[in-house]
Nucleic acid binder design. Structure first.
Lengths: 248, 248
DNA sequence: CGTCCTTTTGAGAGCGATCAAGCGGGGTGG
DNA sequence: CCACCCCGCTTGATCGCTCTCAAAAGGACG
């Protein structure tokens, strides 16, 4: 899992540079990032459930995961945040959150104190709008996944999750024949899709037998029949991209 | 359903008044609301899926619903917005959304053009923070419900939904012996919980037989055994309130 | 080479979906 | 005022998807 970190193709420098922010805002952003940049290995718990949640996490590289666990031990991965994403583990009461935050890969994040971040957003409207747009994208992909969690077949949830993560993590997007990697175990993918690890395995095998896709070597995925895949996932690729990929 | 509209106990005037906004911001907010206030009967479609989505909906009274429908006809109610709530049906690409918006009760909303709303937020930091806090609350309750949609038992999803809606819609909150009303059919509750209407019915009946709660007269609900109810829903009431009810 | 974690596959059970029929209440029209 | 209809609720029967338990195989790492 570790050696695959670079695959996302997004450099740490990307975040402030490619955003059309006014110079002052960009300077402030860079300063904030610089002051709070941290690196963590895969599998690090950044925040426990119920923890004080003083930080806004700016993902600079790698994959971050936000989850909730019920009393009976069932866990749901609520969202996955990639490079350029922002996670603000909060709720209706500022500073209270019931999210667990964990690294999926080796990664670097800027853990910016909530108040600092809000000050910066208050000061620069463009920054606030960026923050807003990023959280709109998060809301949108959560809504999309939630729709499938409810009643859709396992096939549908899983293929949707793969489509979402491929679209978001690769520059080329969802293309037939190209390999993309998902740095998650079947157990984690199960927690993401609301399914047991065993059923993830069976369903992936079946999709392979039907020549829709193939999975090798710890979640290297190749889509062989994109049309069928999109049909099973119940998506229209272009529409989905618009919904969940922020425009540059 | 219609004659129950007043039950929420929230007057239209509530929104701008009870927020500690600076006077100018409040004036602007009132002006915006006044200019775009509309009333609709229950069951009105405010926005079709894929529609142009030029408006931010400020709920002044009544219940609003945001849903998605898959190709196979399965529908998921993504969120329900009550008085004082804000719904911005958008996504990563501003102006693109795949949400359907529909009134659950007779209601009044202010449908404010997106750009107007953003201008106002850009102008007054307090307004932006209010907007942010309200969407944090929405995110939080979506995460909470999503966690149960995934693998929890039907009982758990349903009781959780009832707890959420009671906490949010009544001033007294979740109390044993008090009646609260949910203006939804079992079909709609099913779409909210990811369950079939038939199974909603069976589960409610079973909860009644076990003397946890009773349901009469089109979703008038009384909780008889709050401790058991909370256990089934897998919630801690105070924690949940903090997470999903914005502090005044 | 042994240990631990992940994946794979089998067998069985259970929860919730679907199909179908009957009930009940409120509104409408005769 | 009654008859009817429509819609939502209720209940039964059956089916099938997904869970759980279990065991074994494959890899990574010390």
């Amino acid at each position: 899992m570790l050696e695959r970190l670079e695959e996302t193709g997004l450099s740490e420098a990307m975040l402030p540079d490619q955003l059309h922010l006014p110079e002052e805002a960009q300077t402030l952003l860079c300063k904030l990032i610089h002051a709070h940049k941290r690196s963590y290995p895969a599998g690090t718990l950044l925040k426990l459930e119920g923890d004080d949640t003083g930080s806004v996490f700016l993902v600079l590289s790698g994959w971050l995961l936000a989850s909730k666990t019920l009393a009976d031990g069932q866990r749901q991965i609520v969202d996955i945040i990639l490079s350029g994403g922002i996670l603000e583990p909060t709720s209706a009461t500022p500073g209270v959150s019931a999210l667990e935050v964990e690294t999926l890969t080796d990664m670097t994040v800027a853990a910016i104190p909530r108040s600092r971040w809000h000050d910066a957003c208050g000061q620069f409207r463009d920054l606030a709008e960026l923050d807003h747009q990023i959280s709109d994208a998060a809301m949108s992909r959560m809504a999309e996944r939630m729709t499938r969690l409810g009643k859709a077949a396992a096939e549908t949830v899983i293929t949707y999750a793969l489509c979402e993560l491929c679209l978001r993590s690769t520059a080329h997007g969802l293309v037939e024949g190209m390999t993309f990697h998902i740095p998650m175990t079947q157990q984690q993918l199960g927690d993401f899709c609301g399914l047991s690890a065993v059923h993830i395995c069976r369903t992936l095998r079946r999709l392979e037998r039907n020549e829709v896709l193939s999975v090798t070597d710890h979640m290297d995925i190749v889509v062989h029949d994109l049309a069928t895949m999109a049909a099973i996932a119940e998506i229209d690729i272009d529409t989905l991209r618009q919904e969940i990929i922020p425009v540059a």
